[in-house]
Each structure stands twice: as structure tokens, then as C-alpha cells.
Amino acid sequence: MPGASADRFAACGPADLPWASLAGPLVAAEDALARLDERLRAGAAGEGWIARSHFADACASLWIEGELVALEDLVLHDAGMDIHAPTPQLIRARAIVGARRVIAAQPSGWALSPEGFARLHGEGERPQTRLPGAEIADARAPEATDENAALDSALALIDAALARSAQALARSAQALAGEARAEGGTRREPLPAADPDEAAQLAAWRRMAAVMDGLPPVIAAGLLWDAWETAPPVRRGAWLGRQIVADYLRQRGKTLAHLPCLNTGLRLSPWERRRSPDRATRLAAWCEAVRACAAAGLREHDRLTLAISLLERKCANRRTTSRLPALIALATRRPLVTAGTVAQALAVSPRAAQGLIAELGLRETTGRGRYRAWAL
């Protein structure tokens, strides 16, 4: 019932907030977030920092949920240059990167709208099946011939045989499970069905966001985050709530130049405080997480600014056709680069890409002889 959905978030509202304990962390969080946003708006490394932040926040989001995704694997998977088969966790992290890019490209507050949520929820649960450059490969595909038709029919027969084998294995697994239950084994509970009241719960959560305009932006975002974490309005896509809350901070005007990396700060917050039974402790942990993510962002921005200035000195007396400035821009936008990604982005051979990387003096991060990667 809609009334029950509204009551679900009644205890998460702004009533009886412990302002005495929240005042200090709240002021520190808002100051740090505003300082980072101004630095990104006026700094030379702002665009590169924003592009990098999507990868870092996606990895932190999976870490909060108890999954580990390597940043190197995520960057390579995003570029369509995986060195091994992607895992489900890696696909989810790539979906978070895509969702953050979509939110950042839309007007502030778009993620809170019904259209924005529908698009993000559908995009987040659907893995990427086409790699970059697939359209070019399709355009270059040869026309169908008799030989190709014969090959297609043979592959269809193989697919049918594999389908029959999968059905047989499924029946065998069900039989074994029945025998295990008959012998006293544990029974796995079925997956929960979709909640028919999700639309009403989302509407109640949005109404909660609409009545918080009088509160400071960070504490209002913290109440929304706490409501989503303690009483999730949807069964799937737990990560999506934190990205919507980040867009809420943009809508309130607290950040104008970037989408906050809330997962990066929440990762630095102790689990006992984020999941405490006391709401005041959870909100204080939220404010500390916002301050931590802003402080980490400031340090990364300063490091990037210094690295870019040092690398640009090497391009001072270069010819106008030199590819080094383009390589600097690429290395700024990505946490790491490989010879393959550089060759693909700059339209050069892999050997030429390695020469450019060596000439620029990027830092090698893997310590391997093959599948090497470099970073600023």
C-alpha cells in the first residue's frame, strides 16, 4: 500500500536531528566539498580529475558491498581491451562508471526524476555486450556468401547441441539437489520476487527529498543516503542510491563542477559507524565521509596539477605535430594507460606508443614484462 511505503521512510526524516553533535562534522564537510569544487572549476587538471574519479568511485562502490575490483582491470574493460574474461563484479563496476558519466552529462537533479531513475536502473542492471569499435567492425564485415551460410548452419547445430547439454546438466543438478534434501541437506531459499510496491516506495523517497530544501545540502543528502541504506526502495541496484544522492548535492548547488565521489569517502569510514543502530552516529559518519572524499580529491588534484606541469615542460620545444601533448591529455583522463590504449587513442602503432611513453617518462605500475601499464 502507498501509505505503508510512506511510513517506511517516516523515521528517516529531518525530525529531531542531533544538531549539537552534527554541527562540527557538517561545517567541515561542506567547507571541504566547496573548496574541492572551486579548485576543480578553476584548475587545469579539473577535466582529467573528473574523468578519473568515475573509475575510483566505481571501485570504491564495489568495495563497500564486499567485492574487490582492480582499477587496472576496470580501465582495460572500459576500453574494450580485457586481458581475461570479465567477472560479474567487473561488469557491475563498468555499469557504475557508465551511470556516473550519464549523470554528469545531464542537468543537475536529473537522476532524481522518474525518467532518469528508469534509465539508470535499466542501464545499471544490463551489462555491456558491445565493445567500443563494434560498429566499425560491423561496417567492415564481408557480405554473406554460400560459405558463410554453411558456417552459420553448422554453428546453429552446435548451439542446439550445447543447449541440449545445458538442459541435461540442469536436470541432473536438480536431481542431485533433491537427493541432498532427502538426505537432510540444507535447502537453498528461492530468490525473492520483485516487489510490486517499488514504484510507491520510490515516490515516497522522492517526496522525502522534496521536503528537505530548508536543510543544509550535506545533511539533507545524508538523510537521503541513510533512508536508502536502511530501507532500500528497490531490491536491485543498491549502488544506485549513492549516485542519486551525489546528484542531489549538485541539484542543491553544493557542487557545480563535478559529481561527488561519495563512495570514496564512505570507504574510508568505519563500517561500525556507517551501520550503527544510532542515527546520529550514522549521520556523523556520513559527514566525515563527505569531508574525507573531498580531502582525498584535493590531494589527487594537486598531484595531477604538479604532474601535468612537469610533463608539459618536456613538450616546450617540440614540433606542433608531436603526439606528446595528446599523450599527456590521455594519461590525465585515465588512471593508467597501456601501449594498446595509447595506440588506439592516438592512432599510432603499439611500438610507437611505447616510444612515446618512454619519451614522456610515465611511471610503470605493474612490474611485468607483458601487459604493462603506466600512470602519471
Rank of each mutant, 00 (worst) to 15 (best):
E179P: 00
V348M: 08
P232G: 05
T320F: 09
L330D: 07
L62I: 02
A221Q: 09
R235A: 14
I308H: 00
S108Q: 04
A6N: 04
L311N: 01
D278A: 13
P25F: 01
A294E: 08
T366V: 12
H258S: 08
P192L: 13
V102Q: 01
G214I: 02
P350N: 08
A285P: 10
P232D: 06
R35Q: 14
D226W: 03
T129G: 02
R94M: 08
E123V: 00
L112H: 05
L224F: 02
N148Q: 15
R126K: 13
G355E: 09
R273H: 12
P325N: 05
F55I: 01
P107R: 04
Q201L: 06
L249G: 06
E147G: 10
E183V: 04
D16G: 08
P25M: 01
L310N: 06
N148R: 15
T338V: 07
F55C: 01
D82T: 13
S269N: 08
C261M: 11
T338H: 07
A11N: 01
N148W: 15
A182Y: 00
I357P: 00
T341A: 00
R8F: 07
P107Q: 03
T341E: 00
M81L: 15
S53G: 03
R368A: 15
L131N: 05
A160G: 10
H54Y: 10
